[in-house]
Design a protein around this nucleic acid. Structure first.
Length: 966
RNA sequence: GCCCGGGUGGCGGAACUGGUAGACGCGCUGGACUCAAAAUCCAGUGGUAGCAAUACUGUAUCGGUUCGAUUCCGAUCCCGGGCACCA
């Protein structure tokens, strides 16, 4: 009886489906465990072997935890709104709803074949009205809240109105407009419209004017994390900065808590680092420098310049000031004689786009001719304008300290500004030294102080004398939350006379209307602006970005059919945090930050009881493709005759009837390329299904390229005919290359093909066996045989060649128990550590040993099957039943099965010599000192340690230690 | 440039808290079965020397701590990832 995986796998998949084996209950009373995958965007190209890597890992862990007696939530859903579906709709005219539904069907079918234990009754789809109903609802809560910096959490806007009525905004400065200031009386006198404008500046979801990333090709704005090096993440189109009216999420309000929260979660160091960098918190001070502008008119008097610095201790080293070209004072500071040059410079900067600025970081700038006055010593320094100062960070102006800052130093040197040295020998005159441990010189009241200590002194002095104040700054900006697109959640907002009115809860969900065409609307608006039925109601025409739904979907899984709430408090209290979250690194600063913010927000309002969504995050690596490349003659580069190698055994003459490479492709085998002539070739990708062991199947390839000619070490192939002096078929060798899987490189491996050929269990085991999940590694189809062999071996352990099952025949041999118990222990530990590759290795060792000692004890094998079930569920279940066990492994296994089995464990004893631990050795638990002595003394390492000495005795001391006493 | 990771056979990768380095798998070599192939099974497989037992050597490089270092410390080189005028 053969291992017929196709039959077994479909049989059990059907059975699990019918019995709803993986249905999860919210009130089982058992301890919970929540295992989640980052849900996929259902793209049109389906899964490749890299996708399931994380899903397999999470499935193994979920199944393992279930066996351990936990109620395990392990759901799957689809992040179905987003740009690609709409781009596709623009190209083909197919409605995104239709293509998305199709893609989801394909994905589910592919996923189901791999035998995942998802509870599909909890499937969510972010584009479904029953889901985005609650996305819109949460948005309304964000809209209805502000961040109280005093309490450090979100509160209702109502409470803010009360504060305004009582005392104006003097204790609650406006985060959107720092200059805004009003008293209680003024607030009461404000018109409704003005009040709404003011409140908008406080809301956590707000509409405001700001510099946004505008992508012309995609016709929409993008969030900062969706722009990479000035190009859009999707599609790689150019992105420009533009001032537009947009919806934003006030994520900056949560900056400190997002940082703080990182301490309590179990993310990789790299992930925490990335988020920390993105948030970019820095502590320093704002300092106000009075300005003196010559030839001033009335608008030029009493001006001052506010700068932000993290190094207030260097205040006496300020040799110049620089403001960003976009700074409001930039055009007003030109002193007589400088007007033209300043104007020219500002025009020059305006003509350069983001990309150009980033590409060449030339030192540019212009002197305004005006001066700033150092408030501490009255020293006058020139004020410059330069593009190296960013308008969007801090105050858009800096104080230049060339001896301590590299950029300032370059700037000063370039423009010949004299440099003041305040750090003595720490500054060598050629390069800035950013040290903070120097002793300050030429620094007035700071002289003789260590820089790091001077920081506090200066800040206190600044505040005392009113020159400035302590200030914390962040790199992170508020997140652009609206898209000029169709395929997203509509905003539940109506515009009345420029006032944004939220819809009532009873009016949700605001359904996305059907459209037939997806052209952008007028004036940079989205397609919804083309719909008369929509604009008539003055509904917001933007839609929400792709990350809206994914910011909270993990909560919906807990209570997916609730029609009264996004998730009941009871459900979220039970499931709590996601215990294990698996997904790629690409969401480090997007999805992960947004979802963490939404969680904190919902926590503030008391809708959920935890304020970090994920307890442990694991980033799975990529599975790369192995491309197969061939050398192809670049037409016109060489006369072909020059390139024809003498076929071995031939006379070295060029075959006379070879085709002309000007017209047809000529390929060279990698092992027969004239030395030093590779530059006459280009490497092209070959379809990997026509290559085996880096040898091209020429007839197959030629079938698609009938004119092509293939030249190898021992002959060539042209026009469907072999020319081989040796006879037989010459080998055409390819060049393997590891790179990202992509259609255009013909190196995509489809999991369906692998499952067809080897079965889901083999596929699952092999993906795990490849290496640690966090690691990126190339897919190697050859290696899969070894894992498949293991399952066949296991099968044969149960079914003999004649198809007979083993029968119980006395108690199993101690050696068999020893390896079984070692496997139980090792696999348990490895699974807990998510070290699935070493666990698979241990299974192989176990089966190898059992086979070698021909132990076919049904109990031993059944125990092994329980252990294997999370990894290879189908074969485990099948053999479990064949061996006469009842129920599914899932229902039959009991939480303490491991402990019961481990009663007979062969413990690893630490071996010590004269009390000093040396190594660990394995002995049966009931081992007698006598038998231990024999084994210990036979161990080569112990022999080496002992040398010539004879031990006095070998004793077992407490804590299961073996001690050799000399 | 800055900040994180990481360098182990032909390859993917093991090695718990310092304790027989190279588990497990692939590949390769030889053998058994077979008319033959496939499948399966057995043996070998870091390097050098040797018929062999064995010896020496070996975890990027150099140095240190230790009875003992892939593991800890210092310096250098290389690779991967992230950030990149954030004052």
């Amino acid at each position: 009886m053969d291992y017929n995986f196709r039959e077994i796998e479909s049989k059990w998949q059907r059975a699990w489906k019918q019995t709803e084996a993986y249905r999860v209950s919210n009130d089982s009373g058992r301890p919970k465990y929540y295992v989640l995958d980052m849900f996929p965007y259902p793209s049109g190209s389906g899964l490749h072997v890299g996708h399931p890597l994380g899903y397999i890992a999470s499935d193994i862990f979920a199944r393992y935890k279930r066996l351990k007696g936990f109620e395990v939530l392990h759901p799957m859903g689809f992040d179905a709104f987003g740009l690609p579906a709409e781009q596709y709709a623009l190209e083909t005219g197919q409605h995104p709803a239709i293509t998305t539904a199709e893609n989801i069907r394909t994905f589910k079918a592919q996923l189901d074949r791999i035998g995942f234990s998802f509870d599909w009754s909890r499937e969510v789809n972010t584009s479904d009205p029953s889901f985005y109903h609650w996305t819109q609802w949460i948005f309304l809560q964000l809209f209805d809240c502000w961040f109280n910096t005093a309490s450090g959490k979100a509160e209702r806007i109502q409470a803010l109105c009360k504060i305004f009525e009582a005392e104006g905004n003097r204790n609650q400065p406006c985060p959107s407009g720092p200059g805004l200031s009003f008293g209680a009386k003024e607030w009461k006198q404000c018109s409704e419209k003005r009040r709404q404008e003011i409140l908008m500046g406080y809301r956590l979801a707000y509409c405001g004017l700001g510099e946004v990333n505008w992508c012309e090709a995609l016709g929409t704005v993008l969030a900062n994390d969706e722009v990479i090096n000035g190009l859009s993440e999707r599609g790689g189109y150019p992105v420009v900065r533009k001032k537009l009216r947009q919806w934003y999420l006030r994520i900056t309000a949560y900056a400190d808590r997002l940082l703080e929260g990182l301490r309590s979660v179990n993310f990789s160091q790299a992930m925490k680092e990335m988020q920390t960098n993105w948030i970019g918190r820095s502590e320093g001070a704002e300092i106000r420098f009075p300005l003196r502008v010559t030839g001033g008119g009335p608008d030029r008097e009493g001006l001052s310049l506010l700068v932000y610095t993290t190094r207030p201790d260097t205040i006496f080293g300020v040799d110049f000031m620089v403001i960003a070209p976009e700074h409001e004072l930039a055009s007003r500071l030109a002193a007589p004689g400088h007007e033209v040059s300043v104007k020219q410079y500002l025009d020059y900067v305006a003509s350069r786009n983001e990309r150009e600025r980033m590409a060449e970081k030339a030192i540019t700038g212009i002197d305004t001719g005006s001066v700033a006055i150092n408030p501490f010593n009255g020293r006058e320094v020139p004020v410059w304008i330069s593009e190296y100062v960013l308008a969007g960070y801090g105050t858009g102006a800096i104080m230049g300290v060339p001896c301590g800052d590299e950029r300032d130093h370059r700037f000063a040197t370039h423009f010949g500004i004299p440099i003041t040295n305040i750090i003595g020998s720490f500054y060598d005159g050629s390069k800035a030294n950013p040290t903070n441990s120097a002793i300050l010189e030429q620094s007035g009241f700071l002289d003789g102080m260590v820089m790091s200590a001077a920081v506090e002194v200066v800040i206190r002095e600044l505040e005392k004398r009113g020159f400035g104040c302590r200030k914390v700054n962040y790199k992170m900006r508020d997140a652009a939350f609206s898209r000029q697109r169709y395929w997203g959640e509509p905003f539940p907002i109506v515009w009345e006379d420029g006032i944004a009115r939220p819809l009532k809860e009873s009016e949700l969900p605001l359904k996305l209307p059907h459209v037939d065409q997806y052209r952008p609307g007028p004036e940079g608006e989205g397609p919804l602006a083309n719909l008369e039925s929509w604009t008539r109601l003055h509904l917001e025409t933007n839609t929400m970005p792709g990350y809206a739904g994914s910011s909270w979907y993990f909560l919906r899984f807990m209570d997916p059919h609730d029609s009264k709430a996004f998730c009941s408090r009871k459900a979220s209290d039970y499931w709590g945090q996601v215990d294990l979250y698996i997904g790629g690194t690409e969401h480090a600063v997007g999805h992960l930050l947004y979802s963490r913010m939404w969680t904190k927000f919902l926590f503030d309002l008391g809708y959920i009881g935890h304020d970090e969504p994920y307890r442990t995050l694991v980033n799975q690596g990529m599975i790369q493709g192995v491309s197969e490349l061939a050398y192809r003659v670049i037409p016109g580069k060489y006369p072909l005759g020059d390139l024809i190698p003498p076929a071995s055994g031939g006379d070295g003459e060029a075959p006379s009837h070879l085709p002309n490479p000007e017209n047809v492709p000529v390929y060279f085998s990698a092992d027969w390329l004239p030395e030093g002539k590779q530059d006459g070739f280009q490497l092209i990708h070959l379809p990997i299904n026509m290559v085996a062991n880096h040898v091209l199947d020429i007839p197959a390839h030629a079938a698609a390229n009938p004119d092509a000619c293939y030249i190898t070490r021992s002959g060539y192939f042209s026009q469907g005919v072999w020319h081989s002096p040796e006879g037989g078929l010459p080998e055409f060798r390819t060049v393997p290359q590891v790179e990202k899987m992509s259609k255009s490189k013909y190196n995509v491996v489809n999991p369906d093909d692998i499952v067809d050929k080897y079965g889901a269990d083999t596929f699952r085991l092999y993906e795990m066996f490849l290496g640690p999940i966090e690691l990126s590694k190339p897919w190697d189809t050859q290696g899969i045989e070894g894992v498949h062999r293991f399952l066949k071996k296991l099968w044969r352990l149960c079914y003999s060649e004649s198809g007979e099952l083993p029968t119980k025949n006395g108690s199993p041999p101690p050696e068999a128990l020893k390896i079984l118990h070692k496997t139980i222990r090792k696999v348990g530990e490895d699974t807990e550590k998510l070290s699935f590759n070493t666990a698979v290795s241990q299974f192989m060792i176990c089966v190898n040993e059992l086979t070698a000692m021909s132990c076919r004890d049904p109990e031993v094998i059944s125990s092994l099957l329980i252990l294997l079930a999370p990894y290879a569920p189908h074969i485990s279940e099948e053999l479990w039943h064949a061996l006469g066990n009842q129920g599914t492994i899932l229902t039959a296994a009991y939480p303490d099965w491991e402990e019961k089995l481990l009663k007979e464990e062969h413990f690893l004893y630490p071996v010590a010599i004269n009390g000093k631990t040396r190594t660990e050795m394995s002995f049966p638990a009931d081992a007698e000192p006598g038998m231990i002595e024999k084994e210990v003394l036979a161990h080569p390492v112990v022999l080496k340690w002992l040398g010539e000495k004879k031990p006095k005795k070998v004793i077992i001391v407490p804590r299961r230690m073996v001690n050799v006493v000399l």
